[in-house]
Amino acid sequence: MITIAGKKMGKSYNNFITLRQFFAGDHPLLTKAFSPMTIRFFILMAHYRSTVDFSSEALEAAEKGFQRMTEAYARLQKITAAATSTDEVHSLVAELRQHCAEAMDDDLNTPIVISNLFDSTKAINSVADGKATISEADLKELRDVWQLYAIDILGLQLAGNQQSAISNQQSAYNGAIDLLLNIRLDAKRNKDWGTSDRIRNSLTELGFKIKDTKDGFEWSL
């Protein structure tokens, strides 16, 4: 059951918000538009037999959580394998599949599956930041578990398969920023610090967050 201000949401109570209103942000109770995947993630963050109280704030929290998932998934696709795994990384990867399976077997406990996947983002981030390493076998296992539980079972459309939903304008924009940052990488390699700093500082001024990584860069707005 979903409640809104403590009351069941339903047609007969005339207190419902349609999915289309969520997707367009077109309702007085909504602070903004929420994507279908945010709605899906919001619902999966609670066990199916529990009552969920809807609020715009709760949806915003779900949106941030989903954003973290997509970022972690994107990093997982980018990171590269090393000869061996750091101990913490290896023990996490070794248990992840089992933990996710146990949660699903326990009356479809999706919030626990999500929290297990979140735990694994720490390992993904340390590898991405060069603070830990992951072996080829562990990297394959980690990617397989994310594919099975996040994408196939929870049905979350993370990054890659969400591309089609992004408008042409958005992808052109992303491409332009990537281009600028690649020019900056080249400038750095050529020790052209003037150009490199100019790009970095200007983008930062415009509100971009730029992060240098072992394999290149990441940015967000």
């Binding site: 047609k11 999915l19 289309r20 899906r40 619902i43 999966l44 479809l108 196939d152 049905g155």
Partner: peptide
Amino acid sequence: YGDAHLGHARPAITFDILFRYLTS
């Protein structure tokens, strides 16, 4: 006779999870 609302999305997603899990 009307658009689906959040109250419809929840059971639809829950049974989708069950369908996907049983299939897997």
